[in-house]
Amino acid sequence: MSVQEKRPFLITDAKKDPRVNRLIKEKLDVEEFVIVPLLAHDKVIGVIIADNLFSGNIIDENNVQLLSTFANQAGLAFERAEAHDNLAKKMEELGQAYVKLQETQDKLVRSERLATIGKMAAHVAHEIRNPLATIGGFAHAMCKYPHDKKKVETNAEIIRDEVYRLERILQNVLDFTKPTLPTLRRESLNKVVNDTIILLHKEIEENSIVLRSSFDENIPEILFDSQQIKQAMINILKNAVYSILERQDKTADAVIGISTSLSKKHVKLTVSDTGNGMTKDVLENIFNPFFTTRPGGSGLGLAVTHKIVEDHGGFIEVNSHVGFGSEIIVYLPLQQ
């Protein structure tokens, strides 16, 4: 009854009380006792029975109350113990899951590395096929007409140019695979940006592109590797030039904007162009090695830029609108 109704019962005449179970009557062999259910999560997990066989004192409501309080506490303790057990079990499961996850991640990293190496090998193989075919083709022609001085001269020049191209491909791949950590020095970003503009000035001018630059003079000197940042910026600028040259409307503005500015924790270098802009698909892939939309492009430029900026503890933001142009913002930390 106590189990069914989940409440204590005070029995004063056990032998005559029809509510008392026969088994309890026989086992206890007392007239007066109190029975209190032990509850955990609102389920009866047992009962506590107390009699007065030794004391002989009358069991009153106070005693029932006391025993009920004790039963409640015991129930709670049981719940906690059970919860603790469950928690321990969950912790163990979590531990196992973590080990599994670690193994899977290791496997993933290994296969990703292999996939990158595979991609790189395929890319290099294809990239060198073009210049090799040209070199071989013109060399064949030279063999056919060894006395045609003009032909031999022209073909030799082409072969030389194609060999330069092969060397550039090789250098790009080497630059990308070489693990180089930045050599940090406190320098002026404005100065390095300006030096980079001077490097590419000719290319920008030759393509009738207008360059607009603005520098925030309040930018303090920050720690960075000037060579690497120059490289990162060259890669961004070359893409900007290409995007402008490839724009659909050739009469539209051809402008590259370069600016530096300060934010709370970063120094910002922004390069914008009025080129073609990028579709969502292209945007998602621009930092992936070997991804390129430019024929003959290595697909490594922005991947290298991304790596350099990350190695500096910075990050890159890209905004782009198809048909209007793109904006690449490099954030370098003010303090390392």
Binding site: N130, A133, T134, G137, F138, A141, I158, D161, E162, P295, G296
Partner: peptide, 12 residues
């Protein structure tokens, strides 16, 4: 699009 290759194919 490759100027040198175009020249080569044309000649051949």
């Amino acid at each position: 699009d490759d100027r040198n290759q175009g020249k080569l194919y044309a000649e051949e």
